[in-house]
Amino acid sequence: MLRSPSADRNKEAVAQILMHYAGLDRTGFALEVGSGTGQHVVHFAARMPNITWLPSDIDEPSVTSINCYLQVYQLKNILQPIYLDVSQPAHQWSPHLIPASCDLIVCINVIHISAITTTSGLIKGAGTVLKSHGLLVMYGPYKVHGIITPHSNVEFDKQLKIRNPEWGLRDIDYLIEVAEQNGMILEAMHDMPANNKTIVFRKIS
């Protein structure tokens, strides 16, 4: 069972944002893209028992770790994790994820450590599988209007590009552009601990 210190640090801050938008008074279905260790999804599921959660990852060891967390926590509102490559067209994602099937999609600390095709594929796919008025919630470090702040994030972006030239902080302007092309608008942007942000898109079509 894998463990991420950063997931422990940010899971409640993100949960507070999700509870604000998703609410606790109605049922729903949520996909987590890039669930990683599994720490986030068990925390969110415990805090939001009204929502059924589908964890996913492209990394097989992560899928194994998620299964371990599910066995330990025994939460009834989490489905078995799936292998998911969101750079692929949405109709290839999963039988669980048909058009207009999701109330919420959550993606935490993924798009800066993956190729731009993952970013665009995630947003395009969200435009397909989200219900009308559904939410895409993305957490992580970003550029804002081409500018990275503070200096620690500038250095982080450089290190990411050294590790893989396809990685790096994505510009929020780009995210907004792709989201609008796929029937979503920026609803909110929240400053978060550790120089991160939570971005909330809502499907309007």
Score class of each variant (00 low, 15 high):
Met1Phe: 13
Arg3Ala: 13
Pro5His: 09
Ser6Arg: 14
Ala7Ile: 12
Ala7Phe: 11
Asn10Asp: 13
Asn10Ile: 13
Val14Gln: 04
Val14Phe: 14
Ala15Tyr: 08
Ala15Lys: 10
Gln16Phe: 03
Ile17Glu: 15
Met19Asn: 09
Met19Ser: 14
His20Pro: 01
Ala22Leu: 15
Leu24Val: 11
Thr27Ser: 15
Thr27Met: 12
Thr27Gly: 14
Thr27Val: 06
Phe29Leu: 04
Glu32Ser: 05
Val33Gly: 00
Val33Ile: 15
Ser35Glu: 00
Thr37Tyr: 08
Gly38His: 09
Gly38Leu: 05
Val42Lys: 03
Phe44Tyr: 15
Ala45Cys: 04
Ala45Thr: 00
Ala45Leu: 01
Met48Ile: 13
Pro49Asp: 00
Asn50Glu: 14
Thr52Pro: 00
Thr52Gln: 13
Trp53Met: 01
Leu54Phe: 11
Leu54Arg: 06
Ser56Glu: 01
Glu60Arg: 00
Pro61Ser: 05
Pro61Arg: 06
Ser62Gln: 07
Ser65Lys: 04
Ile66Pro: 03
Asn67Ala: 14
Leu70Asn: 13
Gln71Asn: 12
Gln71Asp: 14
Val72Glu: 15
Gln74Tyr: 02
Gln74Thr: 06
Gln74Val: 01
Asn77Glu: 06
Ile78Trp: 01
Leu79Phe: 03
Leu79Ser: 07
Leu79Tyr: 07
Tyr83Pro: 00
Leu84Ile: 02
Val86Phe: 02
Ser87Trp: 07
Ser87Cys: 06
Ala90Arg: 03
Ala90Leu: 03
His91Val: 07
His91Ala: 09
Trp93Asp: 00
Ser94Pro: 03
Pro95Lys: 00
Ser101Thr: 02
Leu104Ala: 08
Val106Lys: 01
Ile108His: 01
Asn109Glu: 07
Ile111Cys: 10
His112Cys: 05
His112Ile: 08
Ala115Pro: 03
Ala115Thr: 14
Thr118Ile: 15
Thr119Ser: 15
Ser120Phe: 12
Gly121Lys: 09
Gly121Arg: 11
Gly121Ser: 08
Leu122Cys: 04
Ile123Thr: 10
Ile123Gly: 08
Lys124Cys: 10
Lys124Gly: 05
Gly125Tyr: 05
Gly127Ala: 05
Leu130Ala: 10
Ser132Tyr: 05
Leu136Trp: 10
Val137Gly: 03
Val137Pro: 03
Gly140Asp: 06
Pro141Lys: 06
Lys143Thr: 06
Lys143Val: 04
His145Ile: 03
Ile147Glu: 14
Ile148Tyr: 04
Ile148Asp: 02
His151Cys: 02
Asn153Cys: 01
Val154Thr: 12
Glu155Asn: 11
Glu155Gly: 02
Glu155Ile: 14
Asp157Ile: 10
Gln159Trp: 07
Leu160Asp: 09
Leu160Val: 10
Lys161Met: 12
Glu166Tyr: 04
Arg170Phe: 05
Arg170Glu: 07
Arg170Tyr: 09
Asp171Thr: 08
Tyr174Glu: 14
Leu175Gln: 05
Val178Cys: 02
Glu180Thr: 12
Glu180Ala: 13
Gln181Leu: 14
Asn182Thr: 02
Gly183Thr: 11
Gly183Pro: 07
Met184Leu: 12
Asp191Thr: 13
Pro193Ala: 10
Asn195Ala: 09
Asn196Lys: 11
Asn196Thr: 11
Asn196Leu: 12
Lys197Ser: 12
Ile199Ser: 08
Val200Leu: 08
Ile204Lys: 08
Ser205Phe: 09
